[in-house]
Design a protein around this nucleic acid. Sequence first.
DNA 1: CTATATCTTGGAGCCGACTCCAAGTCAAGA
DNA 2: TCTTGACTTGGAGTCGGCTCCAAGATATAG
Lengths: 165, 165
Amino acid sequence: MRDEQTFTIKQTARQTGISEDTIRYYEKIALLPRAERKDNGHRVYREEDIEAIQLIACLKKTGMPLEEMRPFLTVSADADPAEYPELVELLRGHRESIINQIASLQQVVDFIDMKLEKGKYRRDCADDIQDGVRTEEPKPKAVSSVQMSYFSASPGTPKSPTSPR
Amino acid sequence: MRDEQTFTIKQTARQTGISEDTIRYYEKIALLPRAERKDNGHRVYREEDIEAIQLIACLKKTGMPLEEMRPFLTVSADADPAEYPELVELLRGHRESIINQIASLQQVVDFIDMKLEKGKYRRDCADDIQDGVRTEEPKPKAVSSVQMSYFSASPGTPKSPTSPR
DNA sequence: CTATATCTTGGAGCCGACTCCAAGTCAAGA
DNA sequence: TCTTGACTTGGAGTCGGCTCCAAGATATAG
């Protein structure tokens, strides 16, 4: 039998950069599945668990709220997302919003660059919220809590995904 | 008499996508300078103020904490950062971290794309465990090597979404 | 047997970033 | 005059995401 390597929570924390407390917290709120326990009750982690935690860490870096991560973790847990068409939609939506986020970040970089290189004139990074009359509330999405474009989605900008790589 | 247009807080909120309450909050914590008041005490905003708020909105989208925005706002307030060499350093640092963030986001996009297009394999989306003493790492953890099947390669320990073990 | 270390649990506390509220001011309209 | 509406203020409350206990179990070393 393949002996899979296992890790203590401490080792896991070290490998993932997420604190032990936080890992337990994620388990508590069921963002992570309940970890297996040894006879003494200690948690055991293996590669796949660590990868899940790393995925969380990665999404966290992008500013995504924990609640929104659930679908990602579900997808990562079981292989084929195609079986969950709703999930596919979710993923697409997230992809969109991440692309937008990248654009925002790029604008900040531009802003900085401009400032750094003598910048005098600045064309701020908010070209998306022109005086278009936006109703403050993006309608509450029906079924899934996820959607939450990082606010102020540009009105009517289809913005097809960047060419698949 | 110039045509400098001024705005109420409500209009400003609308234009920037930031709520009135939040704008007042930003002023309260001095992230924004105290706005001018009319005789009746009402706040007045003009273009430059709106731009500052939009800058905040933009930085917010990138996940930056309010406290970290202060230098940016200082810079935007008075044009030339070169006079504040310390600020220049700050800006450079932030630029760095934003670039990293973009990379993280791109990885998430890749992750999603992989999942969406039938994904089979993935490479890890994060591997910057800050100055880590990578103690016992069984493998060299190559950044760009494609291993780590994230799923479907669970020999003996299948995780199903519906059955926690 | 005792001390030390590593874990467990439940729960309290903290911080950032809002969000909401009550009470009050002022201007114009019916 | 009374009412409405847009604003003001200070402060309280909320929520997400940790972070920090205290009390207790178990494992190994001396």
